[in-house]
């Protein structure tokens, strides 16, 4: 699996030589997730900061959390393009815990993706689709050139070998 290959958890797999990420975070290590100041003591309204995540996870997570009927509000933002992090704000009805909601959202998203994966693989295994070769662009170009009376590279050599 990818996790065991990735260096350390907090710096993540994006931490490659020459990345923009490195120049921003130099030697600091960041927690993957923190709760920003100003949260409700019972966690009924929190803003989470996810380090080294972007719209990829942010928007998907926002959508699945909004599917929870106990959620009053959920939104996310990437505060600045040169900081590799996102903020996810969750506000709950009836003093439910936003942390539990986030955990539930993550697990629902996992279920969703596993379902899509299985569905894709079964469609692929069914073999019920068009299988064909790629268009040979070079052959098409060469043919057009020949039709229009231009010399095609390689043609004379081929003639040489046959003669």
């Amino acid at each position: 699996m990818a996790e065991e290959e990735a260096p350390t958890q907090s710096t993540s797999r994006l931490d490659n030589p020459g990345t923009l990420l490195q120049s921003v975070s130099t030697s600091l290590t960041h927690e993957k997730i923190t709760i920003l100041p100003g949260y409700e003591p019972d966690y009924s309204a929190c803003t989470f900061c996810l380090w080294q995540e972007d719209h990829t996870l942010g928007n998907a997570l926002r959508w699945i959390i909004m599917k929870d009927p106990d959620v009053e509000f959920c939104g996310y933002t990437a505060p600045h393009p040169s900081e590799p992090k996102i903020h996810i704000r969750i506000q709950m009805y009836d003093n439910h815990s936003a942390v539990d909601c986030l955990r539930k959202g993550l697990s629902n998203l996992r279920d969703l993706l596993t379902t899509v994966d299985a569905s894709y693989k079964s469609s692929l295994d069914s073999g019920n689709y068009i299988k064909e070769n790629d268009v040979d662009v070079r052959a098409v170009v060469d043919n057009t050139l020949r039709e229009r009376g231009f010399a095609v590279e390689g043609d004379d050599e081929r003639m040489d070998t046959t003669s």
Partner: peptide, 27 residues
């Protein structure tokens, strides 16, 4: 080409796991 979608899903799943582990650590 057909391997790309399963690979992408694997990576998304590993992101989810990373956040869950982060939450465990935080609490």
């Amino acid at each position: 080409p057909e391997e790309l979608v399963p690979e992408a899903i694997k990576i998304l799943l590993s992101k989810i796991t990373a956040v869950e582990e982060g939450l465990d650590k935080l609490f």
